[in-house]
Write a protein that binds this DNA or RNA. Sequence first.
DNA 1: CTTGACGCTTACGTAAACGTAAAGCACAGT
DNA 2: ACTGTGCTTTACGTTTACGTAAGCGTCAAG
Lengths: 133, 133
Amino acid sequence: MHNIRVPDTWTIAELAAEYDVTLRTIRFYEDRGLLTPERRGTVRVYHPRDRVRLGLILRGKRLGFSLDEIATIVDMYDAEPGEEGQLEYLLAQITTRRADLEQRRQDLEQTLKELTELEARCQADLTALRQRT
Amino acid sequence: MHNIRVPDTWTIAELAAEYDVTLRTIRFYEDRGLLTPERRGTVRVYHPRDRVRLGLILRGKRLGFSLDEIATIVDMYDAEPGEEGQLEYLLAQITTRRADLEQRRQDLEQTLKELTELEARCQADLTALRQRT
DNA sequence: CTTGACGCTTACGTAAACGTAAAGCACAGT
DNA sequence: ACTGTGCTTTACGTTTACGTAAGCGTCAAG
C-alpha cells in the first residue's frame, strides 16, 4: 500500500520552498541557461531533471563556484554520449575540474587542521584561566 | 654560509608578484581592514604578519568565502588570549566555521565522486565507440 | 634637470548574482 | 462581481570585489 504520492512535476514555488531559495533566484538561473522548465501557457513546470539540476547548482554555489563554472559542470552531467571529439573534450573538462576540486580540498583540509589546532589552544587557555581563579 | 637573504619586510609590489594579485587588490584588502601594513611616510611596508594574512585571505577566497567571512576567520588566527568571554566567543566561532567547512567537504567529496563516475562512463563510451570502428 | 620607475590617493566604472517594486493575467472561492 | 492567491514580465536598484584611469609625490640614473 504505497499511496504516498511522489510528484513528477513541480511549480516554481514548490522548488523554491524545497531548496530554500527565492522565485527570483530560480528564474535567474533559467535566464542564465541553467534551468529549462516546460511551459504550460506562460507558467513554468519543473520536471525531475530540473529539480536535480537545481540541486547541483546550489551545491556548486556552496563550493564557491561562479554560475558560469557551474553551468559547465552541470552540463557535463547530462551530456549525450555524442561523438568522439565531444567525448574527448568532456574528458578534458573533467580533468580540469578535478584538479580544481583537489586544490580546494587541500585548502579545506589545511584550514580544518589549523582550526582544530586553534580550538585546542583556546581550550587550553580557557582551562588555564579557570585554574587560576 | 647561509647568505641567502630572507627579507623580513616587503613592498606592495613584491607581495603582489609573489601571490599573483594586483596592487589594487592588496590596497583593497587594507581598506577592508584585512591588512594593516606599516607606513614609512606614505609608503606601505609589509611585515611577515601581513604576508601570512594575505596568504590566508587568498586561501579563503579559493574556498569561496566572502571577504567579510574571511575577515572573521583571519582575525581568529591572531586573536590575543584575552578574557574568558572572548575565548568562549572565539570557540563558538570556531565551531560554526568548522560546521561550515565540514559541509563543504561533504559537497566536495560528493562532487569528486560523481566526477569520477562520469569520467569512467566517458572512457567506456569512448572505447566502445572506437571498438566499433 | 628631466625622465622613468614606483608608490600614493581619489573616484568613477563594471561584472556577478540576485533584490525589489510595478503592473498585469488567470482562476478559485465567497 | 469582487477579492485573493499564484504566477508572469520588465526593469531599475544593490552589494561585493575589484578594474581602470587621472593626477600627484619622490627618488635614482643618465
